[in-house]
């Protein structure tokens, strides 16, 4: 039992923080704890959650992808265009998912096979894909989305919005993928030590490309959620949301250096960030200040392991970090 507690300590801390944030938010507004309000708010964060689950394996592998919000924009614009041209959702879904996965795979190829730094590569494609979305959408964007495309954002499974159900399904799939498949094994190994993984005959490059393609595809799926909720698509969709997404991944216990982290942590971190943002909205905190808080949380989440390490070094208990002797 205590072993389990230790293994999931970061998740338990997140649960505790969520409770704290919820108490704080309900103190600001009596409407916060209203169930339907809660679920409606949750719907808003599904888009971020899908991107976060896409980014999660990439970060586990020790890389990063900041182009995902731009990929989402390409996805939402493509869905909108196919919708107004009368293509059915079932035909559009594979087309857009393959297209956005291909955009992700381009990042992966440049990082894995060309050996370029992922931050620089995805900064470049962040701009390029954003430009592509603007080109496709035109100045005024795309409106007049057909009802089948809107279904995801306007239907309920019981009292739960369909998009929230989708996010939970993706979360479960992501947990399975990283916890039980060979792709997951390879990802943690690569993130822990790319050199040693290569030496152990791990297909390092292919696994990297797969992770980037998955991230692109999930961003495309997030584009569908966007279209279903906002009933329009523009080139600037989700601009700037990568900050939220990356913060959720890191806050969820995924080391920015790679090699560790779990899907459930990412899910909890999205819930925590969602609670904090909703609370701030209820308290009428302006959007700019919200960005400041999220940014500070990201730095905090990245800095925390280092701070713990420094404190340990300073105040003894050195055997916790000292390597075993011969």
């Amino acid at each position: 039992m205590s072993r389990q507690l230790r293994t999931y300590s970061s998740e338990l801390i997140l649960v505790g923080l969520i409770v704290l944030a919820a108490v704080w938010s309900s103190g600001l507004s009596p409407y916060f704890l209203d169930t339907s309000n809660l679920l409606r708010s949750a719907q808003f964060f599904v888009i971020f959650a899908l991107m976060a689950f896409g980014l999660f394996p990439v970060v586990v592998q020790g890389e990063i992808d900041i182009s995902l919000a731009s990929t989402l924009a390409v996805g939402s614009v493509l869905f909108a265009l196919l919708s107004v041209r009368g293509v059915s959702l079932f035909a559009a879904l594979p087309i857009v998912l393959v297209a956005t996965a291909a955009l992700g795979a381009v990042n992966g190829l440049l990082v894995a096979y060309a050996g370029l730094p992922s931050l620089a590569v995805t900064l470049g494609t962040m701009g390029a894909y954003r430009g592509l979305a603007y080109l496709l959408a035109g100045d005024s964007g795309v409106t007049g989305i057909t009802p089948d495309y809107r279904l995801l954002g306007s239907s309920w499974v019981g009292i739960v919005p369909s998009s929230v159900v989708l996010a939970l399904i993706i979360a479960g799939a992501c947990a399975l993928l990283m916890g039980t498949t060979s792709f997951g094994r390879y990802s943690y190994a690569i993130g822990s030590s790319p050199a040693a993984s290569r030496m152990a005959a791990v297909p390092v490059n292919r696994t990297r490309v797969a992770a980037y393609a998955l991230a692109g595809g999930l961003s495309g799926l997030a584009g569908l959620v966007w279209v279903s909720q906002y009933q329009s698509a523009r080139g600037d969709n989700a601009d700037g949301s990568i900050l939220f997404v990356l913060t959720a991944v890191v806050l969820g216990g995924v080391s920015i250096k790679g090699g560790s982290g779990r899907a459930v942590g990412v899910l909890l971190a999205v819930v925590l960030l969602g609670t904090i943002l909703t609370g701030m909205q209820l308290a009428n905190v302006p959007g700019t200040s919200q960005t400041l808080v999220i940014g500070a949380l990201l730095i905090g989440a990245i800095g925390l392991p280092r701070a713990v390490q420094l404190i340990r070094q300073r105040f003894g208990s050195g055997q916790l970090t000292a390597p075993a002797g011969e």
Binding site: R185, Y188, A189, S193, A196, M199, A200, V202, S260
Partner: peptide, 18 residues
């Protein structure tokens, strides 16, 4: 290069046989 020390013994041994 020989082992990935943060992973378990089982995960290390099974890695090339994944």
């Amino acid at each position: 290069e020989g082992v990935i020390s943060s992973l378990s013994i089982a995960a290390n041994i099974s890695l090339p046989s994944t």
